[in-house]
Design a protein around this nucleic acid. Structure first.
Lengths: 170, 170
DNA sequence: CGAGATACGTCAGTCATGTTGACGTATCTT
DNA sequence: AAGATACGTCAACATGACTGACGTATCTCG
């Protein structure tokens, strides 16, 4: 497929100055790949009267049930006012429920209701369909490479937060 | 780094149903990687009183000088009203200039001014810094894998448009 | 040549999602 | 008891998208 056998980095060049086309190709594929993947669920969200912002909250609550508002704020990197609106709408429509923190009662712990779990599962199903097919057509080695490059785009200061999403939510 | 040697696809499972964690990892890294990369230029754009939408237009005009409004609309996948506002602002501030189409005078061809080229180059420099460092830390093989997976996320119907950005703008 | 399609522009109103700034309350820490 | 922290909320505003309707210049084709 295309000309991937061509070296992506000119052998003699400084590794900090990759060939411009290689970088532009990454920028473009990241833009188109990301937007097309997220487009995949817009219709389903629309049916429920929700938007992308609601999905992001739903997603992370599904990923780490019982996480606090503060933790979610860090993941989403938006203001508490913006998040507050989104969470209120999700709660009013019965997608999430909250409970006071056990160790610290100032905290509010977020969980999905059954309805919320159902919606998140359906949205995830559609994302998995798209991403799985990309994984399969690219092959296993490509997938690990895909992860490695993306990990390198996440600043050191955020990396722990991102990697902590895996593993400890079983 | 982490446990990438573990098979990403359970050997016995259908390739269309990859393990959930593998897919979630991709979703999350794509989200964080994409947002962190685009964050990198927000400050510079702010200085010029521009936003992300302006950068996307600027980027594609730089990538394919002389492209038409219609072509840019297809790339950005937004309405002509939205694009119209963005282009007007870019033109008013002297970043782009337009000329009537040569073969079809209904068309408007878009190009960067010197000022526009300067800004685009500076924004590109900052994106390249981030992306190059991710490429280097991931390694050459990872980079081609990164591209392959992302190409798989672009629907067949859009792939030609995306691949056409490369090569013929020398 | 004339009719219709096409490329582009524009007016007007709306929506989703983000922002800043200021303040209030309950709870925890020391 | 004082101060920090977690969360909520009111108000005003910015950005960038949307729909719908219309207007003009230009091209294409019967």
């Amino acid at each position: 497929m295309t000309d991937v056998s061509r070296p992506a980095i000119s052998p003699g060049a400084s590794p900090l100055f990759l060939r411009e086309d290689e970088v532009r190709r990454g920028i473009e594929l990241l833009y188109f790949g990301y937007t097309r993947l997220t487009n995949a669920i817009d219709q389903e969200l629309g049916k429920q009267g929700l938007g992308r912002a609601h999905h992001r909250a739903l997603y992370f609550i599904a990923r780490k049930p019982g996480l606090t508002v503060g933790e979610l704020l860090k993941l989403l990197a938006i203001t508490k006012q913006s998040l507050g609106r989104v969470l209120k709408e999700l709660q009013d429509q019965g997608f999430i429920l909250t409970s006071p923190g056990v160790v610290d009662r100032r905290q509010k712990l977020l969980r999905l209701t059954e309805k919320g779990e159902g919606l998140e599962a359906e949205l995830f199903r559609q994302l998995r369909e798209k991403l799985s097919s990309a994984y399969v057509s690219a092959g296993q080695e490509s997938v690990t490479g895909f992860w490695h490059v993306l990990e390198g785009l996440v600043p050191e200061s955020d990396r722990k937060m991102v990697l902590d999403l895996r593993g400890d939510n079983s």
